[in-house]
Each structure stands twice: as C-alpha cells, then as structure tokens.
C-alpha cells in the first residue's frame, strides 16, 4: 500500500489530493489565524451538537476518515488496519448520521452526552493553491453520559484540508489519527 491514508481507502477515490507545501506558517500569518479560528468555532459547534450547521461547513466531495489504529512492531511500516476504519465517510453518509441525530429516536444521545472537544497544537500549511490550507491539530474529546459511569476520552491528531468556497472556509478532507487501538468509548456517536 502506498500513498496517503485517504488515497489508500477504497472509499477515498473522490477526495481532493491537495497536499501541504513547505513548513508550518508563522502563528501571526493571517491564513493561520483564519484556519485556527475555523477549528475553534467548529469545536464549539461540535460540543453543542450543532450538527446541521456543521454539515453546512463541509464540502460535497469531503472525505472524512478515521482509520483503525493497530499495534505493530517498530519498523513494520504501518500502524493502521488495512482496509478498515472507524469513519470512512462521504457527504451522504455524514448527512445520514446527522439526520439520525435529528430524529427523536437516536436513543444513544437521548439524554445527550456532555461533550468537550479540547483543541490544541494547531499549525497551518500553505498548499499549491491559494484557496486550500492544510491544518493539523490535536483534539481531546471528553464525553460524559448519565451520572453513574465515568466519562470517557478520545485523543486524536487530525489533518484537515480547508477549501475557500464563496468566501467561506469549508472542510474538504479530514484524516483523524486516533491514539487508541481499542476505543474506550461505548460507541462513536460523536464527531471529531
């Protein structure tokens, strides 16, 4: 297998192939400031489960990928399961997930979880085109349900491709590198 994880996915053929160029942008670069603000705004939106609005920030050709991480020997050359992910989504499958949360019968989120997406280590890269930026970030999601069980965490790194569409930045590709091989959350009825 070669290429990026998005390229390797059987469901990634439609995805944009725009990649980063050069070193990360200075923190006072206006492009970095815009990208960082976009991510912070998104984190608050996801905490509030504002999924319909979130879907509006996503391009029609999105590839939203969260591979399954595996424990492999040093030097094995891979640390994701071949041909398997937690999320390997296009706009249609994301829209069905969001639509489900909007029904009155998505029991797993009724009562809703208390969510907090902690966002850090944001860095931005230019690409070959002015209307695309690559943004990397670390995220730590805390999810608390009910009053008996302890809350659970998902820690992950993300590499996003943002695209400028009609003056707004939108998410065109996201690859989530989760830090657990065995998830410690009862399900992933969340977005990262």
């Amino acid at each position: 297998m070669s290429g990026t994880l998005s390229e390797q996915s059987a469901l990634g053929a439609h995805a944009s192939r725009v990649q980063r160029t050069g070193r990360s942008l200075p923190f006072d670069d206006p492009r970095h400031l815009e990208a960082h603000r976009w991510l912070v705004d998104e984190a608050w939106l996801l905490d509030a489960q504002g999924y319909e609005e979130w879907l509006g920030l996503i391009t029609d050709d999105v590839h939203y990928l969260m591979p399954v991480r595996v424990t492999t020997a040093l030097g094995a050359g891979y640390d994701t399961a071949r041909g398997m992910a937690h999320f390997d989504e296009d706009k249609y499958s994301l829209s069905r997930r969001v639509a489900r949360f909007l029904t009155e019968h998505a029991w797993t989120e009724d009562p809703p979880s208390r969510l907090r997406h902690h966002l850090t280590n944001v860095r931005t890269f230019a690409t070959d085109t002015d209307d695309h930026l690559v943004v990397e970030s670390a995220t730590l999601l805390f999810r608390s349900r009910g009053d008996v069980r302890e809350g659970s965490f998902v820690s992950a790194g993300r590499e996003d491709l943002l695209r400028l569409v009609d003056g707004r930045w939108m998410l065109a590709r996201r690859v989530i590198s989760v830090d657990d091989a065995v998830m410690r959350m009862q399900n992933l009825a969340i977005f990262l």
């Binding site: 992910a85 937690h86 499958s93 997930r97 489900r100 998505a106 797993t108 399900n187």
Partner: peptide, 14 residues
Amino acid sequence: YLMCFGSTGMFEQD
C-alpha cells in the same frame, strides 16, 4: 457496514 454496524454504526450505537 460502516454506516450500520461497528464502532460508528448507526444500528450498533443504539
């Protein structure tokens, strides 16, 4: 499969 079952599956979640 991913849409229905597994860690993110919409059947499995509930």
